[in-house]
Amino acid sequence: MNPIDFSRVDLNLLKVFEALYEEGGAGRAGVRLHLTQSAVSAALARLRVLYADHLFERTGRGLRPTPRALELRPLIAQALDDCRQSLAASAQLSGQASRTLRLGLSDDYEVAIGGRLIQLVAAHMPGLRLIFRQTHSLVVSDMLMSREIDLSLTAGGTTSSTLGREVIGMAGYACVGDSRWLRDGPLPLEEYLRRGHLLVSAQGYVGVVDEALKARGASRRVHASTTHFAALPYLLVGSECIATLPQHAARALARASPLHWTECPLPLPRFAVELGWRKDSVRDAAIQRLKALVRQACEDPVHGLQGGTRAS
């Protein structure tokens, strides 16, 4: 095998690899990179020759990375991150800083603090483009280690020795429903059990409420399930159903929609809110600054994880 002449390797191919890996299709990668689909396909052909592997296999839902591509992903991501950091450092010297960072979080946090975090980033990191990526505690470690995200905000899950974690708050639960049917004052447990429920769950079958009710020898009627808290205004308005969700998301949805929130009558365990990162990012000033802004957004007295009063 002839040795590779690295001086002749087009580093833009690595950006194509990254886009194909994250988008799962040549068409979507092309849109992201402002390239035609045929140009992306041609770049993939060159990557296959360069790495002597097929890299991506076609499935019914797009392109799936091969085992070799899975091995290459963190290495290529690190190389691209190093290049971006060097360019960002150069831009800072010229007063034209520009950077993209990816924050992984579930949409209860995105609904609650996303808007406030965007304001803070615009004020304190004006050269930063922030990307929100959906994640949860079961997959967040893998997403951090594979460099799909730079930081995470989840209810745990960052357990690898290569990851750092910090508990930045504790959160509890509340109920939301159509304001015409859910009034001020405590919701009696009897009415809570009588109402139909919408479940928000990654799996769609059982949640923390069902586990607490089972311990009491009780159950509830779940009419439907969804994976996204942000869908609740569209699913609950006009219905007598209620949903139980983290209180920070309940408050945010009530501020922005016809939903009303109230305390949950069922005692439920509180949970830790964790900020996670790769330990090798401790020297990255932009990531450290974004960590501080995420903490600030979570501590906001109105829009944060602890602030606010019961909606009227």
Rank of each mutant, 00 (worst) to 15 (best):
L14H: 11
K15Q: 10
L20A: 01
G30L: 01
L47N: 06
V49E: 15
L55Y: 00
R61L: 10
G62V: 04
R64G: 02
L75P: 00
A77G: 06
D81L: 10
D82G: 00
R84A: 09
L87M: 11
A88P: 00
S90F: 11
Q96C: 13
T100Q: 15
L105G: 03
D107A: 06
D107G: 06
D108K: 10
D108H: 12
V111K: 14
A112F: 02
G114Q: 11
R116F: 00
P126N: 01
L128H: 03
L130Y: 14
I131D: 08
Q134P: 06
M143F: 14
E148P: 05
I149K: 08
T158A: 13
T159F: 15
V167L: 08
Y173R: 09
A174T: 10
A174Y: 07
V176T: 04
D178K: 05
S179R: 15
R183H: 15
P186G: 03
Y192C: 06
V200E: 05
S201R: 13
G204F: 03
G204W: 05
Y205S: 14
L213E: 02
R216C: 02
R220V: 13
A224M: 14
A224Q: 13
H228A: 12
Y234A: 14
Y234M: 13
L236K: 04
S239Q: 13
R251F: 12
P258N: 06
P258A: 03
L259I: 11
L268W: 09
V282E: 14
I287G: 03
R289Q: 15
E299C: 02
G304D: 07
